[in-house]
Simulated assay, not measured.
Amino acid sequence: MESSNVANRVRAIIIEQLGVDPAHATDDASIVDDLGADSLEVAQIVMMIEDEFNIEISDESADAVVTVGAAIYVRRRVKD
């Protein structure tokens, strides 16, 4: 899968879940500090990424999802 498509799909999940302005969902934006997510919303984002790409993300990898870029990177690391 093309990496820009993965990035766009992951970014769209985050924007939809948090209802944030797409301009704020930059790779270095903190999902909690910059975009206002709580721990439940972060867990929901991880589950939505799993559903979108039909993958399973380990708890260790899920804990690393702290920025938009990290969420994209986690998806790229997981094998289909």
Rank of each mutant, 00 (worst) to 15 (best):
Met1Trp: 10
Met1Glu: 01
Glu2Lys: 12
Glu2Pro: 13
Glu2Val: 11
Ser3Ile: 15
Ser3Lys: 14
Ser3Arg: 15
Ser3Gly: 06
Ser4Gln: 13
Ser4Thr: 12
Asn5Gly: 06
Asn5Trp: 11
Val6Phe: 07
Val6Asn: 02
Val6Asp: 04
Val6Ser: 05
Val6Met: 02
Val6Lys: 08
Ala7Met: 03
Asn8Glu: 15
Asn8Pro: 00
Arg9Thr: 14
Arg9Leu: 03
Val10Asp: 00
Val10Trp: 00
Ala12Val: 07
Ile13His: 03
Ile13Leu: 03
Ile13Asn: 00
Ile14Glu: 00
Ile15Asp: 01
Gln17Ile: 09
Gln17Met: 02
Gln17Cys: 00
Gln17Thr: 12
Leu18Ala: 08
Gly19Tyr: 11
Pro22Phe: 13
Pro22Ala: 11
Pro22Asp: 07
Ala23Val: 14
Ala23Ser: 15
Ala23Trp: 13
Ala23Pro: 01
His24Trp: 08
His24Asp: 13
His24Val: 01
His24Met: 14
Ala25Phe: 13
Ala25Asn: 10
Ala25Leu: 10
Thr26Asn: 08
Thr26Tyr: 01
Thr26Lys: 12
Asp28Cys: 07
Ala29Ile: 10
Ala29Val: 09
Ser30Pro: 01
Ser30Phe: 05
Ser30Asp: 08
Ile31Val: 14
Ile31Glu: 01
Ile31Asn: 03
Val32Glu: 14
Val32Lys: 11
Val32Cys: 09
Asp33Phe: 02
Asp34Arg: 05
Leu35Ser: 01
Leu35Cys: 07
Leu35Asp: 08
Leu35Thr: 09
Leu35Gly: 04
Leu35Lys: 04
Gly36Met: 04
Ala37Glu: 04
Ala37Gln: 04
Asp38Gly: 11
Asp38Pro: 10
Asp38Thr: 15
Asp38His: 15
Asp38Cys: 09
Ser39Asp: 08
Leu40Gln: 11
Glu41Thr: 10
Val42Trp: 05
Val42Asp: 05
Val42Met: 05
Ala43Trp: 13
Ala43Ser: 15
Gln44Tyr: 08
Gln44Pro: 00
Gln44Cys: 06
Gln44Gly: 08
Gln44Val: 15
Ile45Gln: 01
Ile45Gly: 02
Val46Ile: 14
Val46Ala: 10
Met48Ile: 02
Ile49Thr: 06
Ile49Met: 09
Glu50Cys: 07
Asp51His: 06
Asp51Arg: 10
Asp51Gln: 14
Glu52Lys: 12
Phe53Cys: 07
Phe53Leu: 04
Asn54Asp: 15
Asn54Val: 05
Asn54Phe: 02
Ile55Val: 14
Ser58Phe: 13
Asp59Tyr: 13
Asp59Trp: 12
Glu60Tyr: 11
Glu60Arg: 07
Glu60Val: 15
Ser61Gln: 15
Ala62His: 05
Ala62Thr: 07
Asp63His: 10
Asp63Val: 12
Ala64Cys: 13
Ala64Pro: 03
Val65Phe: 05
Val66Cys: 06
Val68Asn: 02
Val68Cys: 06
Val68Trp: 06
Gly69Phe: 01
Ala70Trp: 01
Ala70Leu: 01
Ala70Thr: 09
Ala71Thr: 00
Ala71Glu: 00
Ile72Pro: 05
Ile72Lys: 05
Tyr73Met: 11
Tyr73Glu: 13
Val74Ile: 11
Val74Thr: 12
Arg75Tyr: 08
Arg75Ile: 02
Arg75Ser: 07
Arg76Phe: 03
Arg76Thr: 09
Arg76Pro: 00
Arg77Leu: 10
Val78Gly: 03
Val78Cys: 08
Lys79Cys: 02
Lys79Asn: 04
